[in-house]
Write a protein that binds this DNA or RNA. Structure first.
Length: 823
RNA sequence: GCCGGAGUGGCGGAAUUGGCAGACGCACAGGACUUAAAAUCCUGCGAUCCUUACCGAUCGUACCGGUUCGACCCCGGUCUCCGGCACCA
């Protein structure tokens, strides 16, 4: 160890040491408690950004701490390496996605290694590797066999710029989440996964995920969007046809004065056929078809719609009500038919006002400010039913069950549950993804490829034009095959899978990454799963985190895993900003990890990013703050160097003698306890680091004092290095070696703290008068209430302040304060 | 519109169970060392007032109110910002 802190030399040295000695390689070991620490694996875009550094620094501190704390730690890393950017690079630069991707992986792997992260690289997986996607295909086939995968023609989200369909979850504010282009609709036959089968379990299990941020659970809850209501049949006048509506407000059914169908409602065309309404209805439908999601779902739009010339019969009032079609009713939710209750639903109110439809109030909230006969807006409040026949006078909420009972008895309806969640559309008209292992035979229909023929390899002879259909169609070798059932010539599916499938089970593959017989050995998965701590960005709150839960549940049902949930504990880290704004190329405020590592070293980068803010909060990058972290590491380095130079020999045993000894010993044990709790329990890395800083400050003072207890100081140096090592491992290895230790810090046990050192003989007690601090006194730490009260009241200053006042009450809290209440 | 979360010095943040608000760090200011600078070390650093100074006083955790001996923390209301969902019947 040199006198000066040479981070680049030190970091290289220890990274090589870890690699050569396989310090982070992990095997199953029943004698040890396991700990699975997982960070969301990156898309190999080519360069690491600060968000990665934050994510992986957090995970590394936890993994290193748990290892030192005696756990058998699984800490893997890999690549979510299928996806559009590779293909776009191919279109733009003519590089094959395969080459582009693997080059990026090599680049990013080397950057991750430069950060000194404690990964077991022998378990590395890449989703674009045939060894991985073979099992992705196998999983798809199992899903298909269990009825969880199906093909269906439906109006789907189509991104005109990415030239592919998108899942609902990938449409944000009506735009493609990737390229932000407005998403349109197309009628296509596509593959779906039946995530809706799991809607209820995905929802119910959220309550068991105590280790998840509430925010994420609420987001998933909203996304699943369960609503309980009723379906009720409405007869059509002069027809045998019945229209079934879904409503959550069956209590307002007496107020139903019209009915609306989605423009796509199947029987609309036959109902208007040959009537004067056929033309306007068809025109309206066509207009709606040409709207994209943003236009169609805009709440600011005035309501539009067309009367279709038919009337339904309100089953309760028996009155004839007109039937309309309108784009505010969605075909994909409920039944596509809605009963219009203008008095108690704002959308219906707007529609009825525009089309001059009756507004009949049926719930009286008892609010004198609301004139029910002259409503200015819909009234959704709770109240008493009126204009509702036999239900009059009943509370409307109570009435819901009564209405349902009645419609069920009369056979015109039933209680139903609806979900906002839709089945997961997983076909993509792109090249760089897992081929869907399905084959279409004229005679046998869709059949899965034989399992022994997996993987269905991605062909290499394709053209990347960025237009039209899946690039796989341009391959001369790919499409033609034989039917696995009858052996006749047949065609392969040309679409690939959404990359979110790949990332929905990678955490299981890490448990058994080289398995050639199965995606993973259930026994190994049983040893390693659950993921004890999952760490990643909150932007995955819905997509990845819900899809993975769905996969895990499906695997559970297949008997492959023992827990329905993959991640019991989740930490969502905040974004890394600069000057209060998101780092972005267009703003020119990007700080690259490469640059920082070069200038200050990985340890400084890690320390700053962990110290600057609590993990779940946003972090503003500060160049001055980085300087501060760098200064601190230099300070620690000097401290250790100077102590070693001055006291080359450290006695093993020592006694605590002086007050200064006591004080340093207190700080040392306090810091060990604080770091253990902050890192092991509540992930409060910033406060853990600040307590280490305090210890370092104390050690500087102590080392210059008159009577240095070398044994104590030596122990402080050792423990300091150990508790600092999860944060800044390179410098700690170097210092550890320098003080004469033979083994790496990575195999050392986490130091224990001495509770007795934390007990002080005397403590400072605050004396308050009417809640305001007036005096601070030192008392024996075990002083009880009575003696505290006595000491306080006898204090000269307090006596003077109490002059002429009467003491009403004295509250004494041992170890903390005394509050004297006076008048 | 609905559902969450947050609001503390010049700045990042701390206060873990209702008990000294501002730990730790940054920035800044003054001093030491130096021919000088950097680095390092020491001191100060919420506001206002009093004071030559020491000492001290009052106010202060977005705002208004409440509970309590005591509130950044609990309760009611208001404002602002951030996030999610949104014509889901």
């Amino acid at each position: 160890m040199n006198e000066k802190y040479n981070f680049s030399e030190i970091e290289k040295k220890w990274q090589n040491y870890w690699e050569e000695n396989q310090c982070f390689k992990t095997e199953e070991d029943d004698s040890k408690k396991k700990y699975y620490c997982l960070e969301m694996f990156p898309y190999p875009s080519g360069k690491l950004h600060m968000g990665h550094v934050r994510n992986y620094s957090i995970g590394d501190v936890i993994a290193r701490f748990k290892k030192m704390d005696g756990y058998n730690v699984l800490h893997p890393m890999g690549w979510d390496s299928f996806g559009l950017p590779a293909e776009n690079a191919a279109i733009k630069h003519g590089i094959h996605p395969n080459i582009w991707t693997w080059d990026n992986i090599a680049e990013m792997r080397s950057q991750l290694k430069q950060l000194g992260l404690s990964y077991d690289w022998s378990r590395e997986v890449a989703t674009c590797h045939p060894d991985y996607y073979k099992w992705m295909q196998w999983i798809f086939i199992q899903f298909y066999k269990r009825g969880l995968a199906y093909k269906k023609e439906n109006p789907v989200n189509w991104c005109p710029s990415c030239q592919t369909v998108l899942a609902n979850e990938q449409v944000v504010d009506g735009c493609c989440e990737r390229c932000k282009s407005p998403v349109g609709k197309k009628n296509l036959s596509q593959w779906y996964l039946k995530i809706t089968d799991y809607a209820d379990r995905l929802l119910e299990n959220l309550d068991t995920l105590d280790g998840w941020p509430n925010k994420v659970k609420i987001m998933q809850k909203n996304w699943i969007g369960k609503s309980i209501g009723a379906e009720v049949d409405f007869k059509i006048k002069d027809s045998d046809e019945i229209l079934t509506v879904f409503t959550t407000r069956v209590d307002t059914i007496y107020g139903t004065t019209y009915m609306v169908l989605a423009p796509e409602y199947p029987s609309v065309l036959s109902m208007v056929e040959g009537t004067e309404y056929e033309k306007p209805v068809k025109e309206y439908i066509e207009k709606v078809e040409h709207m994209n999601d943003i236009e169609r779902t805009s709440t600011t739009n005035e309501k539009t719609g067309v009367f279709i010339g038919k009337y339904a019969i309100n089953p309760f009032t028996k009155k004839e009500i007109p039937i309309y079609i309108s784009d505010y009713v969605l075909m994909g939710y409920g039944t596509g038919a809605v009963m219009g209750v203008p008095a108690h639903d704002q959308r219906d109110f707007d529609f009825a006002t525009k089309f001059g439809i009756d507004i009949i109030p049926v719930v009286d909230p008892g609010d004198p400010e609301i004139d029910l006969n002259n409503l200015k807006a819909a009234c959704a409040a709770e109240g008493t039913l009126i204009n509702s026949g036999e239900f009059n006078g009943m509370n409307n909420r109570v009435a819901i069950d009564k209405f349902i009972e009645l419609v069920e008895k009369e056979g015109i309806g039933k209680k139903t549950t609806n979900y906002r969640l839709r089945d997961w559309l997983i076909s993509r008209q792109r090249y760089w993804g897992t081929p869907i292992p399905m084959i279409y035979c004229e005679d046998c229909g869709w059949v899965p490829e034989k399992e022994e023929n997996l993987p269905v390899m991605l062909p290499t002879d394709v053209e990347f034009t960025g237009k039209g259909e899946s690039p796989l169609t341009t391959s001369k070798t790919f499409g033609n095959t034989v039917c696995p059932v009858c052996g006749k010539p047949a065609k392969r599916e040309m679409d690939t899978m959404d990359t979110f499938l790949d990332s929905s089970w990678y955490f299981l593959r890490y448990c058994d990454p080289k398995n050639t017989n199965a995606p993973f050995d259930p026994k190994k998965a049983e040893y390693w799963m659950n993921v004890d701590q999952y760490i990643g960005g909150v932007e995955h709150a819905i997509l990845h985190l819900m899809y993975s839960r769905f996969f895990q549940m499906a695997f559970y049902d297949m008997g492959l895993v023992k827990d329905e949930e993959p991640f019991r504990n989740l930490l969502t880290q905040g974004m890394v900003n600069k000057d209060g704004k998101k780092m972005s190329k267009s703003l020119g405020n990007v700080v690259s990890p490469e640059e920082i590592i070069k200038k200050y070293g990985a340890d400084t980068a890690r320390l700053f990013i962990l110290f600057a803010a609590p993990p779940e909060r946003e972090l503003d990058w500060s160049d001055a703050g980085v300087e501060g972290s760098y200064r601190f590491l230099n300070r620690v380095y000097r401290l250790v160097y100077e102590i070693k130079a001055k006291y080359p020999e450290v006695p093993g045993a020592f006694e605590i003698k002086t007050e200064a000894d006591k004080s340093l010993n207190y700080m040392l044990n306090f810091a060990i306890k604080k770091v253990s709790e902050d890192v092991g329990g509540r992930f409060s890395f910033n406060t853990a680091i600040s307590s280490i800083m305090e210890l370092v400050n104390e050690m500087y003072k102590y080392k210059e004092s008159d009577e240095v207890n070398v044994g104590l100081l030596g122990k402080a140096v050792k423990d300091l290095i150990l508790i600092l090592s999860p944060f800044v491992p390179h410098i700690c290895e170097e210092m550890w070696e320098h003080i004469g230790q033979k083994e790496s810090v990575t195999v050392m046990r986490w130091p224990e703290y001495d509770e007795s050192a934390l007990v002080k003989d005397t403590v400072e007690i605050v004396v308050q008068i009417n809640g305001k601090v007036k005096e601070k006194i030192m008392v024996a730490s075990d002083a009880d209430k009575q003696s505290l009260e006595k000491i306080a009241l006898e204090n000269e200053k307090i006596k003077a302040l109490l002059e002429g006042k009467s003491v009403i009450k004295v509250v004494a809290v041992p170890g903390r304060l005394i509050n004297i209440v006076v008048k």
